[in-house]
Amino acid sequence: MRKAQNFFLLQDSNNDGKADKRIPYFTGFGFTDTHTMAHTLIRAPGNWIHFSHGALNKGEVTALQSDLKLRIDYSKIARFSTSGTKMEIVNSGLNNIWGYQLRHNGQWYGTEANDMGYSVVPMESGTSFPGIGNEKLRPYQPWLPPFHEFRVGGTGLSGLAFADDVSGSFPEEWKDVAFFSQSNYRNN
């Protein structure tokens, strides 16, 4: 049996550019699918750090600073406080989240690795999308319908970025354009 995946806070207490403290924050992340373990950490307002949890992974995550436990199964977006004492699930679904981003206007977006219908979508807190696990955050809520018929095709869609440049160095036609990478493999 494998050990559970852990998150650590690394600190540089003597300002030499190297971490000299390793503080365990969380333990118990699943990693059945090692290429989609907990990843894509993004600092957010309110002293939160959002992250994506992989498609096939299941785990009971424990916050070691508070003993809080949270079940995180399948594709989820979750967040934890910078103090390491709080954590909660924010979104459920998509097929396999490999890109997640907070735009300058406060809107969250996600992309799934396998382009099963949600190449790039807005991901408001509390929403659920169909995908691996097909778990809704609330049993009564509807699935979010597909936002477009456009498909990029294939698998290996990863990362997500926007040309959110308030200084204006990007060309105007790049405004509100999503960028992500894709492997050469296509399944369509």
Rank of each mutant, 00 (worst) to 15 (best):
F8C: 00
G99Q: 03
L137M: 07
I77G: 05
H53Q: 09
R22S: 12
S13C: 13
G117W: 11
V177L: 04
N187L: 11
I72Q: 02
Q11L: 08
E112F: 11
P45L: 06
G54N: 07
G156C: 06
G99F: 01
A163L: 15
P45S: 12
A55P: 00
A78E: 00
K175Y: 09
N47E: 15
G133T: 12
G117M: 07
E88T: 07
R138H: 13
S181T: 11
T127Q: 07
Q141A: 08
M123I: 15
L157A: 13
H39T: 03
I132A: 11
T82L: 07
N14V: 02
N96T: 00
D20H: 11
V61M: 02
M1N: 01
P45T: 09
K69A: 04
S92T: 10
F7N: 04
A178C: 03
I72N: 06
Y109D: 01
P139K: 14
V120H: 12
P146E: 12
G117F: 06
W108A: 00
R103C: 10
E124R: 04
D115M: 05
T27I: 07
I97G: 01
G154S: 08
G168K: 14
F80Y: 09
L94R: 00
F31T: 01
L41T: 06
D20E: 03
D20L: 02
K86P: 01
S158Y: 14
A38C: 07
N188P: 05
F129R: 00
S75I: 00
P145R: 01
S66M: 09
S181V: 12
V177R: 13
Q141L: 03
S167Q: 13
F29R: 00
S169F: 12
G159S: 14
L137G: 10
T62N: 14
Q11W: 02
N96K: 00
A4H: 07
N134E: 11
Y185D: 07
P122S: 04
P122N: 14
V121Y: 08
Q101C: 09
N95R: 10
Y100G: 01
S119D: 03
A63C: 05
Q5I: 05
N96R: 07
S128I: 05
T27V: 15
